[in-house]
């Protein structure tokens, strides 16, 4: 690995100043499970590595039913799974975080890093897209908030500008009968890169099982994670029956733009998008019916 300079600022201000001073020569370090591999392989060669884990604001999970969730960019995946609010209110995002790698990896890897790394197959990004998450960024020109849908531009490329840093992910509080789910297909039991990943979030009117809100996120079936807008829209106002789920699954398949690669063919991936869309919708619906959170 090439020589680097390491800084571990204790405040967001300090981190922003450091990153601004070094621009493209700097890279934030969170769990390091992607960055250290990239440094070793020489695919990223920052001169300055800015460790963001010492910044209290970035290292915390803050949740209330009034204000929703603020998930710090440096929170390790294992802390999400160990958090009762996360398991209760965002089970889909929690299961996505708990699917990434081994316990060794989950002890370090972060949802923020998963997003900023920009992999089309990131497990937590479709779950974030389904929840309508927003990313709070801080940089030399100040702060801005951007939707996670659209955050990734191409494999390994995101909207982050040189010197800009992900501070936290913001997710609205769930409605009374709302929940989410994430499933991925891999050819093994555990610890692999998604061939297809699907996240779904639903809010229901349980008096007649009508869908109030629906969002479906797709992973590993395009150059970036995908928000399946038509599929999501098709559910809103409808009773969540088999026909509605089938229609949404077909529209989700149509939204996917997969390629053939070593993990699977485009044709197989399209098929799996349909299967996982049906399943995640069914699981999210079951959870949403059981939820009673206000």
């Amino acid at each position: 690995m090439h020589a680097i300079n390491y800084e571990a600022p204790k405040s967001l201000d300090e981190a922003v100043k450091l990153l601004a001073a070094h621009g493209e020569k700097a890279r934030p370090l969170s769990g390091g499970t992607d960055l250290l591999i990239q440094l070793r392989a020489g695919t990223r060669r920052p001169e300055f590595v800015v460790d963001i884990k010492e910044i209290p604001e970035l290292a915390r999970i803050s949740f209330s039913l009034q204000h929703g969730l603020k998930l710090g960019a440096a929170v390790p995946c294992i802390a999400i799974h160990e958090n009762g609010d996360m398991r209760k209110y965002y089970p889909g995002l929690t299961e996505a975080a708990h699917l990434i790698g081994s316990l060794q990896i989950q002890s370090r890897a972060t949802v923020g890093g998963n997003l900023c790394n920009g992999s089309p197959a990131a497990d937590t990004t479709p779950a974030l897209v389904a929840l309508g998450a927003q990313a709070r960024l801080a940089g030399p020109k100040g702060e801005r908030i951007v939707p996670v849908d659209g955050f990734c531009l191409a494999p390994g490329r995101t909207v982050l500008q040189p010197g800009e840093l992900l501070v936290e992910l913001q997710i609205p509080a769930p409605e009374r009968h709302a929940s989410d789910a994430y499933l991925r297909f891999i050819p093994r039991n555990e610890m692999d890169i998604a061939v297809v990943g699907v996240g779904a979030a639903l809010s229901l009117d349980v008096s007649d099982d009508r869908v109030v809100e629906a969002r479906i996120g797709l992973g590993a079936v395009g150059p970036t994670p995908i928000f399946a807008a038509e599929a999501s829209k098709s559910l809103i106002g409808k009773t969540l029956d088999a026909a509605a789920i089938e229609r949404a699954a077909k529209l989700a398949v149509a939204a996917a733009t997969p390629i053939d690669d070593m993990r699977g063919t485009a044709e197989f991936r399209r098929h799996v998008v349909g299967v996982l869309t049906r399943r995640t919708l069914a699981i999210a619906a079951e959870r949403a019916r059981a939820a009673n959170q206000r």
Partner: peptide, 10 residues
């Protein structure tokens, strides 16, 4: 078993 909490439900 399939992965994760949703996998357990499956």
């Amino acid at each position: 078993t399939a992965s994760g909490m949703a996998g357990e439900m499956l």
